[in-house]
Design a protein around this nucleic acid. Sequence first.
DNA 1: CAGATATATAAGCCGTGACTTATATATTAA
DNA 2: TTAATATATAAGTCACGGCTTATATATCTG
Lengths: 111, 111
Amino acid sequence: MNVSHHAEFFQMLGDPTRLAIFDHLSRGETSVGELAGHFPISQPAVSQHLGVLREWGLVERRREGRNMYYRTRSEGLAPLIDWLAHYQAFWPEKLDRLKSLMKEMHHAPRK
Amino acid sequence: MNVSHHAEFFQMLGDPTRLAIFDHLSRGETSVGELAGHFPISQPAVSQHLGVLREWGLVERRREGRNMYYRTRSEGLAPLIDWLAHYQAFWPEKLDRLKSLMKEMHHAPRK
DNA sequence: CAGATATATAAGCCGTGACTTATATATTAA
DNA sequence: TTAATATATAAGTCACGGCTTATATATCTG
């Protein structure tokens, strides 16, 4: 449990634009240009956010001609899960709520 | 799923000192002065971090004479859990890993 | 009440990081 | 090869937030 490493991870997710980009990508693979069209910032700014997300293993990319297609990597969320699990160990009574919450999501219709 | 609200939450946890203070408190109720002794920053800085954590419902406090004792509120982590659960819905195959990880923690000796 | 102790709030400084524009690199098309 | 398109990198600007010191507030003690 390295606190400052986790803090960096949280900080990385702590930018609204970057988080929104990740959220968008979680709905499906997208090219940089298409992404840039969805946000009120320049293409270089989008590329910079993608670069950060990629450094942390939250996204990966694939070239197709001149386009780069980015997609999310669910394993990238492991630090978050680990961090949460750590505190769940201190508060076992909360574990059940989390479990049931996740079961709900699992059974809910996929949007 | 309000992205910018979640981003603010991540940003709030994204400071290493603030996260370390939360981590320390998760081990047990502590007074402000005692906390300040554990970190290389001034007492006002500690109070400011505690103020932010309190605004987000991650800690609560209780007065005892001149001292203020702070303790964590596990419910404060709900935004994080909700955010994760949202993505788990997109990646159900990852749900099992999380569950088993948490079960491990649950059975591991409490440190 | 006066002084000491514990914490909170105010004001100001300063580094970090998210953005911009300009430019470099890679790929395709003519 | 030259031009056009898609993305990445570089350099510079600026706002935000975490820190400091100074001071206000609350509680206890003599």
